[in-house]
């Protein structure tokens, strides 16, 4: 009995590894046709769902039929087959549809960047306020409010952004009420509570005796924060910023309402664009064949990006423990 339970428990721990590996492999397999077709060029190609004439010699119809017979031994032709099956090339074999991920990739990075620029100072301010400035009477309700707000589902932030915050921002900065700027700011507002409460927790780990010694030397509050608390809690604070970054990067619902969902580069910050999670959310249901594969390619890129970011955060936290 003991032996069985021990085995089961170690198997379920290993299941996490299996699951994560499976996610990676499955995404890769589904993305494979797109990876094969576009390669790494995918991430610098700004065209999405654009028909272009095929540059290289297109296989004639007889070739096509021939190659279909050789389907099993010849993988190269399967792309043409997929396109043909999709009905994209059935009338005119001279064009093909190109999928490139640059626009959503740039949209993801820019919106995350705006979110971080907006959220980090405010979250730090809130953390400093909660851990050093506020009297105990205010401290507790504000702290609880911040933590509760971190629990609100992201779709609520998105909906609020669409109906209230977007029009408000476009009123001030001009431009559309769905834009890169609005998306970045809504993302920022969404991660503020998360970042603030994690940062406050790590700032609170600073031993009182260190702070008191500094105050005894005549240091001001700001000097204590800058020279004692920040250096002491540095790793925890950076870790919480990176975790918030990872959350902003993969966020779908808060952004889907307010980014616009159009495949163009934003010329101004108030222009609409699109991000990887939003592309997935909007286009997945209607896709098949190569476009579906391209979407899986995007999902894979997003997964790898967030994997790298979270792992670097873990690296920092781990270093902190040693």
């Amino acid at each position: 009995m003991e032996f069985i339970f021990k085995k089961i428990s170690s198997l379920s721990a290993a299941f996490i590894l299996v699951l994560l590996t499976a996610v990676f492999i499955v995404l890769f397999l589904y993305a494979k046709p797109a990876i094969k077709k576009y390669g790494l060029h995918f991430i610098i190609d700004p065209r999405w769902d654009v028909s272009v004439p095929i540059k290289e010699k297109t296989p004639t119809k007889t070739n096509n039929i021939k190659s279909q017979k050789n389907k099993n031994n010849n993988i190269e032709v399967s792309d043409a087959d997929v396109l043909a099956a999709l009905g994209i090339t059935n009338t005119n074999a001279k064009t093909e549809t190109i999928y490139g991920g640059l626009v959503p990739l740039v949209g993801t990075i820019l919106s995350t960047l705006i979110a971080m620029l907006f959220a980090v100072p405010i979250a730090m301010g809130i953390a400093i306020f909660l851990s050093e400035i506020s009297p105990p009477l205010i401290n507790k309700p504000v702290g609880i409010a911040i933590e509760l707000l971190a629990a609100i589902p992201s779709i609520i932030y998105g909906m609020w952004g669409l109906f209230y915050f977007g029009p408000f921002i476009s009123h001030i900065f001009g431009g559309s009420s769905v834009s890169l700027l609005v998306a970045g700011l809504v993302l920022g507002i969404m991660i503020i509570p998360f970042m603030a409460s994690l940062t406050r927790d790590s700032m609170n780990t600073t031993p009182n005796i260190l702070k008191e010694s500094a105050y005894a030397m005549g240091a001001t509050k700001f000097e204590v924060i800058k020279d004692i608390i920040f250096p002491y809690a540095r790793k925890g604070i950076i870790g919480s910023i990176i975790l918030a970054l990872g959350r902003a990067l993969g966020e779908t619902m808060a952004v889907a309402f307010v980014i616009g969902g159009v495949f163009t580069f934003p010329k101004k910050i108030t222009d609409p664009t699109v991000s990887i999670p939003v592309v997935l959310a909007n286009n997945f249901a209607e896709s098949s064949g190569m476009s579906l594969s391209a979407l899986f390619y995007l999902a894979l890129i997003l997964f790898i990006l967030s994997f790298i970011i979270i792992f670097s955060a873990k690296f920092y936290f781990l270093k902190n423990k040693n």
Binding site: L17, A22, Y30, G250, T252, P277, L295, A299, I310
Partner: peptide, 23 residues
């Protein structure tokens, strides 16, 4: 496993959606 589990906790939820769609 602890690290992996934490990574999984922060994995974008939409990616989990694409994975389940695939399987």
């Amino acid at each position: 496993i602890r690290n992996l589990s934490d990574v999984m906790m922060s994995a974008p939820s939409i990616v989990i959606g694409t994975f389940v769609y695939a399987i």
